[in-house]
Design a protein around this nucleic acid. Structure first.
Ligand SMILES: [Mn+2]
Ligand SMILES: [Mn+2]
Ligand SMILES: [Zn+2]
Ligand SMILES: [Zn+2]
Lengths: 138, 138
DNA sequence: CAATAAATGCACTTCCATTGCATCATATAA
DNA sequence: TTATATGATGCAATGGAAGTGCATTTATTG
């Protein structure tokens, strides 16, 4: 409990009750979550608060936003020591079209992409869509 | 003129006046277009018609939809002999954060992506964001 | 405690994608 | 040619999600 508080303070984020709960919620999940997911998990909380909490987390390097191609933003906790800003640190994301879940494949860094002369890369998004290991068995 | 008609018929799409115009419009552009772009170019046409035209084109392999991460769907003509369905044929897309234009880099195929055991890839989306060659000079 | 700053809640807006249904145009059968 | 069917178009409305303005509550600090 106290560790989360200290962690948030370390990140310059004031550890309010709601923020601690949201952090815990995301830490327990192994998949990326949408705003709606959190909304459903905390029905008493207002959507705006959750929305702004995620933004605050993102701005302070606690979570990263994921565009998995569904049109719905997902969020996941950053790894310890993750540096989302640095291109070399970018990992790929997988979206399962069966269970509709999105996961970070943090071990799978995005390969270096060659661009035509004159193009300058600042950010790369790589999303693989398919069937996840949970859904693949059957 | 006639060639476009024949091309559309080949693709099992009835070559209406509007469809021919939209096709021509896209053929003249070297960048991916949004529905709104077409809307602005053909102010007399209804948005729904344009929307459905793009869907029809997409279903019949005339254009491919591009998710460039802006939240606005873009469309571009498929290359001659392009097979969007086949993973090996997938190319990457570049979105310029300065001019806000998105281009197909059809020469740059998406590299093969290794996935963890049990994951099955069906589709890959790779978008690079940065500065395009047109905007890079200054 | 008073003064200040930050977090939260509610209502509202915006933007784009998408659909239902009526109408119009075209193609084919009678 | 006329009737019939099928597809294309236009208009209006809906839906989902992101984002914002402002009032209120809560926490911090002097
Ligand atoms: Mn991730
Ligand atoms: Mn393309
Ligand atoms: Zn799955
Ligand atoms: Zn540019």
């Amino acid at each position: 409990m106290k560790e989360i508080e200290m962690f948030l303070e370390n990140k310059k984020v004031r550890p309010t009750a709601m923020r601690i709960l949201i952090y815990k919620y995301m830490a327990e999940k192994e998949i990326a979550v949408a705003l709606t997911d959190i909304e459903n998990a905390f029905t008493k909380a207002d959507r705006t608060t959750l929305y702004r909490t995620l933004k605050t987390f993102e701005e302070n390097g606690i979570v990263h936003q994921i565009d998995d191609g569904t049109g719905i933003s997902k969020y996941a906790l950053c790894e310890k020591g993750c540096n989302c800003e640095i291109e070399q640190d970018l990992h790929l994301h997988f979206h399962c079209s069966n269970c509709n879940e999105t996961v970070c494949l943090t071990e799978h860094k995005i390969p270096h992409i060659n661009l035509p002369e004159g193009y300058l890369a600042a950010d790369v998004n790589l999303v693989v869509k398919g069937i996840c290991e949970k859904c693949g068995g059957q």
